[in-house]
Structures are given as structure tokens and as C-alpha cells.
């Protein structure tokens, strides 16, 4: 109903950190002046390894509708293997954007009318010094490159704060590397 809300859906697997990624973006977005920030994980039981999604809504005004995202403006996919299990484009608005972690080149995919941005976040994260499979900070870099919604500085700050006790610089570096290596395609 409201047109001012940007709806972002995050796809990951239970335990992969999609909630944390969305939370970091939520924090940075609030700092960037979005007064309305609502992040909601899948309601119910979350099981490790199973596909999960998280909703993030941001707006310049306070958000009152807490219902799950049905028609996202963009979707973030933490793991390209999810494409085989989940229709990540479900409800995605016309011209909506997909940000995908994949080792494959951008022309390996065809999402029709949707925009696509890809980065090998898994490789960037390992290069930054994170354990294999930690992709939830790297994907934030790709997200920012593709959307420009929040700002690199604020996101880096939010990552360092969230991971203050656990490799803050490496996590921030993973996002930075992913930002630089994200390839954006046309619709």
C-alpha cells in the first residue's frame, strides 16, 4: 500500500547468517537516516541447513506494517545452490534486483526482466581471512555495490560493531573485496 518502503528479501540457509547480514544492513540504514527499519526473520522453526529467508524493510518514515514481504524490490541470495530449491524471484517486482553469491560468471544466468548482480563472495571471504563458508558479511559488499542504498562507510562500521569480538577487520575486508568485485548486469 505504501510506496515509500524498500523491501529486501534475504535468502540463505539456517545457520548461514542471513539474519545477521540483514541486521547489519538495518543498523547501517538507520544511521544513514532511514527512520523506518524493520527486519523480520522467518517466523517459526528454523532448522540448520534448510532454506530460510529474512525480510528487511527500510523507509525514510516509520514502518507500521510488520507482515512478511510479498513483493520485494530486491532479493539477496547468500548461496547460489539455493536457486535449485527456492524460487528466489517469487513476487519480485518488475525490474527488481537479484544480488547473488556465485562462483559463476554473470552470463551463466538469465532472470528475464530482473536485474542481476553477482560476486564470488565465498572466495572474497576466504581471501579476507575468514573461515570457509562465512559469507554473510561479504554479501553486504555486493548488496551495497548493486543498490547504493546505505553507504560503504556505514556498512563497514556496522560490520565491525557486530563482529567486534570475532575478526572485525577480516569481516569488513570481506565486504570490501566483494564490493570491488561485484559485476552488475542490465535488466
Amino acid at each position: 500500500m505504501r510506496q515509500d518502503i524498500i523491501e529486501i528479501r534475504w535468502h540463505g540457509r539456517g545457520g548461514q547468517g542471513a539474519i545477521t547480514a540483514a541486521k547489519i544492513v538495518a543498523n547501517a540504514a538507520f544511521k544513514a537516516g532511514y527512520k523506518g527499519v524493520v527486519m523480520a526473520p522467518t517466523f517459526g522453526t528454523e532448522r540448520r541447513g534448510a532454506p530460510v529467508f529474512t525480510s528487511l524493510k527500510i523507509s525514510r518514515e516509520k514502518i507500521y506494517d510488520l507482515s512478511p514481504i510479498a513483493t520485494p524490490d530486491m532479493v539477496v541470495v547468500l548461496d547460489h545452490t539455493l536457486l535449485e530449491e527456492v524460487d528466489v524471484t517469487s513476487g519480485l517486482k518488475e525490474g527488481g534486483e537479484i544480488i547473488l553469491n556465485t562462483p559463476k560468471p554473470i552470463d551463466a544466468y538469465d532472470f528475464g526482466n530482473h536485474k542481476l548482480a553477482v560476486a564470488d563472495v565465498t572466495a572474497c571471504a576466504t581471501e579476507a581471512g575468514l573461515a570457509p563458508g562465512i559469507v554473510n558479511t561479504g554479501i553486504i559488499g555486493a548488496f551495497e555495490k548493486a543498490t547504493g542504498l546505505v553507504g560503504r562507510e556505514l556498512l563497514g562500521e556496522a560490520i565491525r560493531k557486530e563482529f567486534a569480538a570475532m575478526k572485525p577487520e577480516e569481516n569488513a575486508q570481506a565486504a570490501s573485496l566483494s564490493f570491488d568485485r561485484t559485476v552488475i548486469g542490465g535488466a
Binding site: A26, K35, V37, M39, F43, I63, L66
Partner: peptide, 10 residues
Amino acid sequence: GYLLSHTYMP
């Protein structure tokens, strides 16, 4: 429950 308990907001 969930709508507020598990949702993040400022």
C-alpha cells in the same frame, strides 16, 4: 509473538 518478539526495529 514473532511480529514483535522476533522482529528487529529501532
